Computed example of a mutant assay.
Amino acid sequence: MPDVDVRCSALVFCGSSVLLVRRTSPGDWSLPGGVPGPVEALEECARRELAEETGLASSGGRAVLVLDAVNRSVARRMLDIVFLFPDVDEPTARTLAPCEQGLRPQLVDLHQLETIRFRPPIAHRIAALHRLRDSVPEIIAEGFQPWDMAVDLGENPAPEHR
């Protein structure tokens, strides 16, 4: 069974643009995001990364897309869970500021996504989520206890849960 790495990303729209961060090296673009802490909720991670990488404080993110990548040669899997946050307006978008060295937040027109080095290459999915953003259901439920899950996580449940 491959090891699993989890990343949480934030998706924010402003009109017909999407908020991305550009890495100064190697010069590619991505959604703001990163790795959750050991006890950090997934939406909380996406919200924290959004603030750290763009200076934008937001709440109410909902999971709308799960990206799955497997590297069989090293037996690793990466899951990137994309959280859609409420749209921002132009005045708010003008307050974006680089908060992490090597990253530059910027609004990118949806029509330009196919022309930039966007990683992962999900421009068509971002455009579809923009069109459907008010009707996409949330796909993640959080807050379960380890003993509620189908996989044994080595937890000792309280007597009332045995």
Rank of each mutant, 00 (worst) to 15 (best):
L79N: 02
V88T: 14
F118H: 09
G154I: 06
V18T: 11
W147E: 10
F83C: 04
L65M: 12
D80R: 13
E142P: 07
G154H: 00
A150E: 14
D152R: 04
N71E: 15
D87H: 04
D148M: 14
A46F: 05
F13M: 08
L19C: 12
E100T: 08
G34T: 03
R125G: 03
P38E: 12
D148C: 13
P121N: 03
V12W: 05
T95A: 11
R77N: 08
G37F: 09
P2W: 01
V64K: 08
E40K: 04
A158P: 04
H130K: 04
P38F: 09
P38M: 08
R133H: 01
V6P: 01
V66T: 14
V6M: 01
V70N: 07
I139S: 00
G37E: 15
P98R: 04
S25P: 01
L11G: 04
R76S: 15
L113W: 05
E160A: 12
G37P: 01
R7Q: 13
A51F: 13
L19A: 09
A97I: 12
C45T: 09
L113Q: 02
W147H: 06
A63W: 09
A127F: 05
D87W: 01
V108K: 02
V4I: 15
A63Q: 06
C8K: 00
V21K: 00
H111K: 13
R94G: 11
L153P: 05
R48S: 10
L19I: 08
L153V: 06
D80L: 07
T54K: 04
E114K: 14
D89C: 13
P157N: 07
S73T: 15
V39F: 13
L113F: 13
V88Q: 08
A97L: 13
F83A: 02
G61M: 09
E43P: 02
R7K: 14
S17G: 10
V39D: 12
Q106D: 01
L42V: 09
L132T: 08
G15I: 01
P98M: 03
A10H: 08
I139W: 00
E52P: 01
L129P: 00
R117W: 08
D87G: 06
L84I: 11
F13H: 02
L153D: 07
P120F: 05
V70P: 00
V82I: 11
L20H: 06
L50A: 12
W147N: 04
C45Y: 00
R117D: 11
S9Y: 08
V6Q: 04
V21D: 01
E52C: 06
T54H: 00
I81S: 04
S25N: 15
F13D: 01
A127P: 00
L20E: 07
V151E: 15
P36H: 07
S58P: 03
D109T: 10
H161C: 07
E53Q: 15
L19P: 04
R23H: 15
A41W: 13
L50M: 12
S16E: 13
V18W: 02
E52G: 08
R76E: 15
R162T: 11
L42P: 07
G102M: 00
A63F: 08
W147K: 03
L31N: 03
F83Y: 14
L129S: 05
V12H: 00
S9D: 13
R7M: 11
E52N: 12
I122G: 02
C45N: 07
G33R: 03
E100Q: 14
C99R: 15
N71C: 15
